[in-house]
Amino acid sequence: MRKFNKDIIFGLYDDETDLISAVRIAKGAHLDIYDVYSPFPVHGLDPVLGLAESRLHIAGFIYGMLGTLTAFLGMTWIFTKDWPIIFGGKPYWSVPAFIPITFELTVLFASIGMTVTYFVINGQGPGVVNPVLHDRITDDKFCIAFDMHHVDESSAKSFFEKTGATLIDKKKI
């Protein structure tokens, strides 16, 4: 069972320009933003929100290298130690012929590894139920949420009213 342990107050905005200026004001007023939600990636939001660049690509590089080594060392071991066979008079360790499979496995490992990592660190997966604050967030509304344990209700409300939120609501998640 899911635990309802956060009291969230959130405001919806109609446009991403309003969202970015509201986030900027919240940062200026030192309001602790719980999260920001949008129906599509809003460019220019990350620096305002102070999000560090994602390190997903570093993980991708490591997975890719793992694929390279698996393929290359695997084929090397198989064709020089485990069961050496001569094909067309070529040497056992015929490096150029190993390159296509090495490349493919690099891409395969990097892609699978990155995608799985992405879903795991997002806390997503088949059948996962995450709380949805409002049904229009995946449609056309932009949302700023505060945790009421960190930001008191009245200051959040006045913030939303001042920045032009079109809907203010509370939800326990």
Partner: peptide, 25 residues
């Protein structure tokens, strides 16, 4: 939908993932 919420951090990772997958593809 894997429990997608549209959080800003998720969108950021989404773009990072699609860029690298595009670079690999």
């Amino acid at each position: 939908s894997f429990g997608w919420t549209g959080s800003a951090k998720h969108w950021q990772r989404f773009e990072a993932l699609s860029l690298v997958l595009a670079g690999l593809a």
